[in-house]
Design a protein around this nucleic acid. Structure first.
Lengths: 230, 230
DNA sequence: TGAACGCAAAGTGAATGCAAAATGACCCTT
DNA sequence: AAGGGTCATTTTGCATTCACTTTGCGTTCA
């Protein structure tokens, strides 16, 4: 939330954003020297930030061979989506214990707005509303440890998810809208256990859609294009 | 799993163990100089390890004021137990999809052994079997990302859990045995959603027991005893 | 001609040095 | 005597430096 006044703390945030936003292609080497020049700092705070990002699973740190952008295998993606499903399931379960009627109404409003975007085919608006709904549920769970964990996992799959959603076709869209209606229904009834299962299956559906897109569209070898110049 | 041949990697593991095993009391300052002498290294790799441990939530890193052992508030403990419950629930859900009959049998055997320890009043053996059962379910889930996450959360609450279990009375013990029977039953039937709820509630029970012990036994101010000499 | 050896350059891992901030003690003022 | 302020010491943050590993290329020998 509040970034410390230390250099390595600021670098950690900036570097994480830089990597998540797609500044480096999958599996590419990340020379310390380049990043030092990019941020205008010495290697010490940069290396500290890299260690943390490696612990978060965003980069891979091979001994004496430096940092590489963690290339997610199909297996990794599958695991991360299931993990995210478990965390969202937990968020839903806890939300049912704590959420107020006003917060449920806020989510209902978001759902309505999202449905409008769906009808108008506004992909960006739909995606933003979708994310906000899940964020609201996460907040309603009133659990900082869970929120931090969920955000960390989300960061690891964001680039994959973003790429997959762009290729997504309509049939998955309509299914997602139906699933969201189930979510809202369970939330209104404060049916925690039920909502947990719905949310897990919701992420399971997303996972399957993403995996289909990957196996269909992307070649087995990691493609090298879209190398943004730093 | 495999520790790298690097110094900071080894220090990270050793320092984490040192902290988790209770080498430092809650809220105490952790001067870098002392740790350097303890491990016989310079400050650079030590600081890198500290950054990672701060990201894991084990220590607190205040700018220009060094590292402190993270003192868990009652709220923190509550949140972490719920988070652990969500992760175990996910593990159970996934385990039901993947587990073999042989693995179920192995867990049944552990449960039987644990029941024996319960009857004989062998606290240590009971605790070990209990942990092994949950570890088996976690393995059966076949999800490395989940396992790593669960172990990280477990590390954060281990000291609290250990201290609380020592003060635990019999009535909670017998309840735990009954809950384990429910877990096994759901696992045999591969009832994933049901098992998830059971496991979440199982951790919820543990949480409540721990919180009762804390509010009953421990004074509002953090007690300073049990300072192990390094 | 191809493969193996060796050397040089680059990059990483860890230690040291230096500046700034914080802690604590002592002194001064009231 | 109590409170506040100043200075010295300690500790942290970051840069720099040194040492070792890896790697790419050229040479040599089969």
């Amino acid at each position: 939330m509040d970034r410390p006044a230390t250099l390595h703390g600021e670098i950690l945030t900036r570097l994480r954003d830089h990597l998540v936003e797609g500044g480096v292609p999958d599996g590419a080497r990340i020379p310390e020297k380049d990043l030092c020049e990019l941020f205008g700092i010495s290697r010490t705070p940069l290396r500290e930030a890299l260690k943390v990002l490696a612990a978060e699973g965003l980069v891979e740190l091979l001994p004496n061979r430096g940092a590489r952008m963690k290339a997610l295998s199909v297996r990794d993606i599958s695991e991360l989506f299931d993990l995210m499903g478990g965390l969202e399931a937990l968020a839903g379960r806890l939300a049912c214990e704590n959420i107020t009627d006003a917060e449920v109404s806020a989510i209902e409003a978001l759902h309505t707005e999202m449905y409008g975007h769906y009808l108008r085919g506004n992909r960006h608006g739909y995606f933003a509303c979708n994310q906000q709904i899940h964020e609201h549920i996460l907040m309603a769970a009133q659990n900082q440890a869970l929120a931090a964990n969920a955000h960390a996992v989300m960061g690891r799959i964001r680039r994959v998810r973003f790429a997959a959603n762009l290729d997504d076709r309509g049939e998955r869209w309509s299914a997602a809208v139906r699933e969201h209606e189930l979510i809202l229904d369970a939330l209104r009834r404060r049916a925690g256990a039920e909502l947990a299962t719905i949310l897990f299956n919701h992420l399971r559906s997303k996972k399957l859609a993403v995996l289909r897109n990957i196996e269909a569209g992307e070649a087995p070898e990691p493609r090298q294009k879209q190398v943004t110049v730093t």
